[in-house]
Simulated scan of single mutants.
Amino acid sequence: MKVRKNKLVSLAALGLVGGLALTACGGGAAEDTSGNAGSDNGGAAASGGYAELTGNLAGSGASSMQNAQNAWTESFMGLVGAEGGDIQVTYDATGSGTGREQFLAGQVKFAGTDAALDEEELAASAEQCNGEQAFNLPVYISPIAVVFKLDGVEELNLSPEVIGGIFAETITNWNDPAIAELNPDATLPDLAIVPVHRSDDSGTTENFTEYLSDNAPDAWTHGPIETWPIDGGQSGDGTSGLISAVEGGNGTIGYADASQAGNLGTAAIQVGEEFVPFSSDAAAKSVDVSPREEGRAENDIVVDLDRTTAEEGVYPIVLISYLALCGSYADSAEGEAVKAYASYVISEDGQAVGEQNAGSAPISEELRTEAQAAIDGITVG
């Protein structure tokens, strides 16, 4: 059971914004800047109505997708401005738990979350969603990297059992035989391991511990959990805080969205008989081999990740970040802005911006079609 307690834009993205903006100025159905040409009911984006978008649109949530969200908001505002609209879209990387709380309290109009809204949260959402329940859309697929800083060691192979033992603090030294056996060519120092965890309620933590629970339940006995269950130890607030803590030591190890691993070492993870380094392709393959979570409404698209697969080339520690959106918005302008922004994020162009700025894996065409239908179903006014 899952337990919960409840603007960095690259030159590549700016270049893409410029290219898309020029397309927008040209007009015409074939030059639809939303990436959703052919949709009959995709809100302002599909109808060419960016010029009508005005006001402010605020979201908050998962820090894992911060780089992607920063690029999406900047790119989207550039497209809107090119058509004569004037909208300010902001995303505050507060962490998944806080983002969901703010969304359910009506403080923001969309949330980014690494753990999809659950049944209780969906039921509570009707109060803020004009009488309709919220729903989840998968928009950001990325590997969770096991990051480390260990002087003299650049490459590291780890099994799920060893990772579980390290973070459960039963494997405490880098020259432990269990680590040495997996890394015969490495010179492992006689040095204490310093595991670093997230201090905030984190969907990344939940995804990471779910992987450990599924693959190494004897080593990791705490289950999948959003709030770190072990007292003490080093921690960091948000993804950036965890990365800073790992960077600041020697012998440190943590877990974070791979897009923010920077210059830290990253472990290859044992899957079957091979060790697989993270990549967007390997993360996307993990999603492709996984079914949809059962018992959800048709518009509530949540992937039930198969983290125990032994299929070749799959990186199993995968994070899927979701957009949490209302099924209905009382304010028409606000609702149309949400629909246009969400349509852009899932579009081929939007997903390309995410890949260029955050190393994420674009969602499949099948997922895009299902997600657009869910967005089209949002009622406004």
Rank of each mutant, 00 (worst) to 15 (best):
E155C: 06
L156M: 14
N157W: 15
N157G: 06
L158E: 07
L158W: 09
L158Q: 14
S159I: 07
P160S: 10
P160C: 12
E161Q: 08
I163A: 02
I163R: 00
G165T: 08
G165H: 02
G165E: 10
I166W: 05
I166S: 06
I166F: 04
F167A: 04
F167Y: 14
F167D: 02
A168C: 14
E169M: 02
T172M: 14
T172V: 13
T172W: 15
T172H: 13
N173L: 08
N173I: 03
N173D: 14
W174C: 15
N175R: 04
N175C: 11
N175K: 14
D176H: 04
D176K: 02
D176L: 05
P177A: 08
A178W: 08
A180H: 15
E181Q: 13
N183M: 03
N183H: 10
N183L: 13
P184V: 11
D185F: 10
A186R: 06
T187H: 13
L188Y: 05
L188H: 12
L188R: 08
P189A: 15
D190T: 12
D190A: 02
L191W: 04
L191D: 10
I193F: 00
V194K: 00
P195W: 08
P195H: 01
V196R: 02
V196K: 05
H197T: 07
R198E: 10
R198G: 14
S199Q: 09
D200I: 13
D201P: 10
S202E: 08
S202G: 12
S202N: 12
G203K: 07
G203D: 05
T204F: 15
T205M: 07
T205P: 00
T205H: 04
E206F: 09
F208W: 08
E210Q: 05
E210W: 08
E210A: 05
Y211D: 02
Y211A: 08
L212H: 09
L212Y: 09
D214E: 10
D214G: 07
N215G: 05
N215V: 03
A216E: 01
A216H: 01
